[in-house]
Structures are given as structure tokens and as C-alpha cells.
Nucleic acid binder design. Structure first.
Length: 415
DNA sequence: TCTCCACAGGAAATTGGGGGTT
DNA sequence: AACCCCCAATTTCCTGTGGAGA
């Protein structure tokens, strides 16, 4: 392997080759075709088509969990539509694309859209909602005749959906007399539709398309297409792709997750200087990614969430789990007192505990013991105790408590 | 079948902080 | 300085409920 230049001895000089084009596996890679979503693409096309006939495109809602190709699908079709618009004088098109992530209300979303259209400056604020909407209309008037507004993660707008009511009716209400406007909403939350107010459903719902989770076969095809470009021929063992697909399908059916898994498995093989990617690398990759997901979630907890988690961890180290809300709350109070932080009411701590349950840090099981216990929750730690303590100890606000817990856990032989 | 425990969890009101105008 | 808007987090108040035991 040493060609005499000495480079082969450099620690960066891997002796094995795994990837042909690694960029294909990156998050921002956009596939050119989506054979698994042909039906959905056609539906999108049918909904956008009216724009080419001089009226507004249908309003459209895309539903489906993350990694189902919703965003890719809409981008793909909008690109085609823009291409069409560029080649004809029948359609003057403006597309405004925004993510409602962090824009938790109509007010914020309107402000964000204004900023998006202006292309610079900061978000307007400090005015009342209708003035904000009026400001938005002013900006929209400056755009082309046909306007399509894409709002990704539209579910984060919650129940404050006034803007979604206003926008589709802007022409009818005289706010925008010379424009055709339509809204495309993309949502990960399948229940979002049910929480919308009736008037919004009425004005916004022309059509909706559901992106069902990919099954293992579809994921396999998706991975095969990527792998063909990404990896050198023959480095993937036969069962690697099906296994990645199976893991992802078992979970959320997310293509993104499946691709991450494959990428990670490839990296592991490479880092170990192995010539081929094997099944064991996939399993290792899954464990690493799963752990990373938990760690990231745990690091981004709010202070009060941390206290709630810490309370359960404390009970866990004392081997007193599963514990009902009341016990957790007692522990919570002592922890908060010790840290001299403000103490929340039990009702609120219960919400925090449940949110931790939904994020997968706790097991929250409801039970009913009739006359000797009634209806109640029982909480216990779902994640690995040692790893959890390690992550929590990184936070200086609570590390003194965590250190004590580590001692107790060690004494009890739990870690 | 009826009671009744020990909570769960919905709804409304309050708080406090960020950003603004006049 | 005085006052206005928006909003997430929290508190307050309350009604609802599954099943063990009579």
C-alpha cells in the first residue's frame, strides 16, 4: 500500500475505499425522481394545474410523518411548475416558501412571511394582528399574479390559525384584488387537521394528500438507488440494505432514517478499515444513532423538564420505581428546594412528566387499582441509568445533585 | 350493580417577559 | 415614563373516570 510518499502512514490516509460519492447520503441531497410517490406527485400536479389555466391553484395539505418525501415531492412539482411558468406568458408565478418551525402563531407566521418576501431586514412586531396581516398583504401585492405560499411544519401554528383563514380568502375580501393566492400546508402531525377551527377547514381545504409511511420494500428500493451511486460496487454485503430498511420500517418508516443508518454503517466500516459493510455495522450504527437521538433530546430539555426527569432518576437510583405522580412530586419538591429554584405546582409537573414520557425518556404507564388506588400514572426511567446520569451531569445547574445520585447508584450496585 | 378512591386532565385566568409606540 | 400587543408557561379550579370491593 505504501507508495513511497509516506502518505499511507498518515492517520488520515485510510487504506480502504467504501464510498464512491458520499454526498448522495447527506441530508440535503435531493433525489431527482420519486418512483415510490408517483401517485402523490400526480395528485399534487392536479392540484397545482389550475394555476396554468389562469386561476388559483387549489389549496393543498400534505400529511405524513417525517422522512416520507413530502417536502421533496412538493419541491419537485413546484420546480416543474416554475419551469413551465418560465417558458410561457400564461403564468406569472411567485412561490413563497417558509417553515413555520418556531413560528408558533398566525401573528408570527405573518411576520415571518413578510420577512421572507422582503428578503432581508428583521421581522416586524409590536403591532396588533390585523395590522400585521395588512402589512403582509402590502408585500404580497408586490409579487406576481399567481402566488403559492408553502408553509412547512404548519402544525406548529397550533390553534391560532387566523392567518390560514385569511389568506385563501384575501381575493374575495378585497385585500388582494389582482392576485390569485393559494396555500400549501405541510404537516407531520396527523391530528393537526382535527384541531383546526371549522372556518379554516372550510376556506382552506380543497384537497389533502396523505403520505403513508414507506414499507420495508419501498425503503429497500430507495436505499438501493442511493447506494448505487454512493458506494463502490460490491462493498455492501447483501443483507445490509434490507436490514437498514427493516429497522427504519419498524420505527417510523422514514427514508431519512434509513439513509442515515446506511451512511453511518458505511462510516463505521470505513473507520475500522474494513473492506466491506456488514450487517454488524448496521446494528452498531443503529445503536449509535439511537443513543445520539436520546442524548440530543436530553440536552435540549428545559430546566423544569430536567427537574422532573431528575426526580424520576432519583427514585430510580433509590430503587423506588415505578413511582406514582405523588411520589415523584415529593422528590421533585426536595430537589427544587435543594437547588433553590422555583417550585411548580403538581398539576404542572404532571404535564412535564408526560411530556418526558412522550419524548421517550420515561415509561409512563397508567393503572387503576380501584378503591385502593384509583386511576394513576406510574413513571420509571426508560433510558439507561448510567448514560442518563452522565448526560445530566454535564449541566452545571444540577450537577451537585447528580453527583450524589451517582454515589447512591454506585452503592446500590446499579452502575 | 353501586361506591368511591386517587388521581387524570380540560378550561380559564394569571404571570411575566419580549418587543413596540407615543 | 406610561402604556400597548403578543404569547408561553404556569396556576387555579374543576369535572371525569376505571375498576376493586361491598
Amino acid at each position: 500500500m505504501d507508495d513511497g510518499t509516506g502518505i499511507a502512514n498518515n492517520p488520515y490516509g485510510s487504506t480502504v475505499e467504501i464510498f464512491a460519492d458520499e454526498s448522495v447520503l447527506k441530508e440535503d441531497w435531493q433525489p431527482k425522481e420519486l418512483p415510490e410517490r408517483e401517485d402523490e406527485l400526480e395528485e399534487i400536479r392536479n392540484s397545482l394545474a389550475p394555476a396554468t389555466r389562469g386561476v388559483n391553484a387549489h389549496n393543498l395539505f400534505l400529511y405524513g410523518k417525517t422522512g416520507q418525501g413530502k417536502t421533496v415531492a412538493i419541491d419537485h412539482e413546484l420546480d416543474l411548475l416554475k419551469e413551465f411558468a418560465a417558458g410561457t406568458d400564461k403564468l406569472e408565478l411567485s412561490v413563497v416558501k417558509t417553515s413555520a418551525n418556531n413560528q408558533s402563531t398566525s401573528y408570527q407566521l405573518a411576520a415571518h412571511l413578510i420577512k421572507e418576501i422582503r428578503g432581508s431586514g428583521k421581522k416586524p412586531s409590536g403591532i396588533d394582528q390585523q395590522s400585521m396581516f395588512d402589512l403582509l398583504y402590502d408585500e404580497l401585492r408586490g409579487l406576481n399574479e399567481t402566488i403559492i405560499i408553502v408553509v412547512d411544519e404548519i402544525d406548529s401554528i397550533g390553534s391560532n390559525d387566523d392567518l390560514l383563514y385569511e389568506l385563501p380568502r384575501a381575493r374575495k375580501n378585497g385585500h388582494l384584488e389582482n392576485h390569485w393566492i393559494s396555500v400549501i400546508g405541510i404537516s407531520n402531525d396527523l391530528e393537526f387537521r382535527d384541531n383546526l377551527s371549522p372556518k379554516v377547514k372550510d376556506s382552506l381545504y380543497d384537497s389533502e394528500i396523505e403520505f403513508a409511511p414507506y414499507n420495508a420494500n419501498q425503503l429497500t428500493s430507495i436505499l438501493e438507488r442511493r447506494a448505487e451511486r454512493a458506494f463502490i460496487d460490491g462493498v455492501l454485503a447483501d443483507d445490509v440494505i434490507p436490514l437498514c430498511a427493516a429497522f427504519a420500517a419498524q420505527d417510523e418508516g422514514s427514508a431519512r432514517q434509513a439513509i442515515r443508518l446506511l451512511y453511518k454503517a458505511g462510516e463505521i466500516a470505513l473507520n475500522n478499515e474494513q473492506e466491506a459493510v456488514e450487517e454488524s455495522h448496521v446494528r452498531e450504527a443503529r445503536d449509535i444513532l439511537e443513543r445520539k437521538r436520546i442524548e440530543e433530546g436530553m440536552r435540549s430539555l428545559t430546566t423544569q423538564d430536567q427537574f422532573a426527569l431528575l426526580s424520576v432518576v432519583a427514585l430510580e437510583t433509590a430503587e423506588e420505581t415505578p413511582a406514582r405522580t405523588r411520589q415523584v412530586y415529593q422528590k421533585y419538591k426536595s430537589i427544587v428546594t435543594r437547588l433553590d429554584s422555583n417550585q411548580l405546582v403538581e398539576r404542572r409537573v404532571r404535564d412535564h412528566l408526560q411530556s418526558l414520557g412522550m419524548q421517550g425518556f420515561l415509561i409512563a404507564e397508567t393503572r387503576n387499582r380501584g378503591i385502593q388506588g384509583g386511576n394513576h400514572y406510574r413513571f420509571e426511567l426508560k433510558t439507561d441509568l448510567e448514560a442518563t446520569l452522565e448526560i445530566l451531569s454535564e449541566d452545571s445547574r444540577i450537577d451537585e445533585v447528580v453527583e450524589d445520585l451517582v454515589d447512591i447508584a454506585t452503592a446500590n450496585g446499579l452502575i
